[in-house]
Simulated scan of single mutants.
Amino acid sequence: MEKEKVLSIKDLSISFNTSSGKVDAIRGVGLNLYKGETLAIVGESGSGKSVTMKAVMGILSSNGEVNSGSINYFYYRNKEKVQVDILKISKKEMRKRINGKRIAMIFQDPMTSLNPTMTIGSQIMDGMIWHYKTPKKEAQKKAIELLELVGINDAEKRMKNYPHQLSGGMRQRVVIAIALACNPDLLICDEPTTALDVTIQAKILELVKDIQKKMNISVIYITHDLGVVAKVADYVAVMYAGKIVEKGTIDEIFYDPRHPYTWGLLSAMPDLDTNDDKLYTIPGSPPNLTQKVQGDAFAPRNIFALNIDNRLEPPMFKISDSHYAATWLLHENAPKVDMPAELKKRIERMLKEAEENGK
């Protein structure tokens, strides 16, 4: 059965005009997402993960400029499939037709995405009343159901609370309830567990997973935490300096990574079974994107860099039908380079663990 496409990003390039000059934040990003699937976008801070998704939501800051590309969103209206290029519709249309109603976003810090002057109940009901003209009584009933769905006890009483009266974990649950209020097809989670402690993090991730199953929605996670990725994703896109440098299924990225940057990210994950007494870090810093990047942006930090990396940008090399990586090491004429030995051992341990857990 053919998979149903929900989102298609092609050759997206975005720059920002800043006091330090023009920053080329996104440099030719391409992605596809299908119904019911979970995609995780990973990379260091500043790699362009959030900017890409803000473009999908139509909420780029005023100094942002889309230089090229398209963001096509597919949905059904009266059983007829509709395709919308998000970059070509007005902000007003975006608010009316897409935001909240079709694509919803959960931001990292619930305290800044909740209105401190409005009750929790009003904030959940708002979208239903605005998008669907839902009668107040009906909206109230659905808001209570949503609070129960996201695991908040005493939902009716909580409707009257203000954000400051709730804990961080409860506020994040409320933000999820607001995002789900209009039954969106696509949920974007921007670092949804950053401000929470580990036990609450696990509960929030489980919650999003359960809701996804019940509602058959597609989910995109933006994160730099590979532990989160391992728990939730079907597919992973690794971003570096405004480009996707590797993409594949969760198993391909975790057990058969091919890009040196992905090797670095996986090596930098804390591991109790390692023999190393130090935690691995990728040397150097990401490039300054106010200056034109010559060749491979990762080359200055890459101990496996080839001469060609300083001159030419690598294309996406195909490894399998679902696995691609942008590194000259995959070229047929490149010298054979294996991943670091410690990472190889770690992957073997991860595979063994997965087998023992029956995965």
Results as ranks from 00 to 15, higher is better:
Lys49Val: 14
Glu342Arg: 15
Lys3Ile: 02
Asp109Val: 00
Gln83Trp: 03
Ser68His: 09
Met269Asn: 08
Glu80Ala: 12
Arg258Pro: 08
Ser47Lys: 09
Glu4Asp: 14
Thr262Tyr: 10
Leu166Asn: 03
Tyr261Ser: 10
Pro315Phe: 04
Arg97Cys: 01
Ile211Gln: 03
Asn310Arg: 15
Lys136Asp: 09
Ala25Trp: 09
Arg77Phe: 05
Val198Glu: 12
Ile103Pro: 06
Leu187Glu: 05
Val208Phe: 01
Leu207Met: 13
Tyr280Thr: 11
Gly127Leu: 00
Met105Leu: 04
Lys247Ile: 04
Ala326Ile: 14
Lys92Pro: 01
Asp256Leu: 08
Gly69Lys: 12
Leu187Val: 07
Phe16Leu: 01
Pro110Cys: 11
Thr281Ile: 10
Pro283Asn: 13
Asn288Val: 10
Leu60Tyr: 08
Asp271Ala: 15
Leu114Tyr: 05
Tyr255Asn: 14
Ile41Lys: 02
Leu114Thr: 07
Gly100Val: 01
Lys318Ser: 13
Ser50Thr: 15
Phe74Gly: 00
Ala268Lys: 12
Ile204Phe: 07
Ser267Gln: 15
Met239Asp: 10
Tyr221Lys: 00
Tyr280Ala: 11
Ile106Leu: 02
Leu312Thr: 12
Ala155Glu: 04
Ile89His: 09
Phe254Arg: 10
Val56His: 09
Met105Trp: 05
Leu272Asp: 02
Gln212Phe: 02
Tyr34Pro: 00
Asp271Lys: 14
Asn72Met: 09
Ala305Gln: 08
Leu149Thr: 13
Ser167Ile: 03
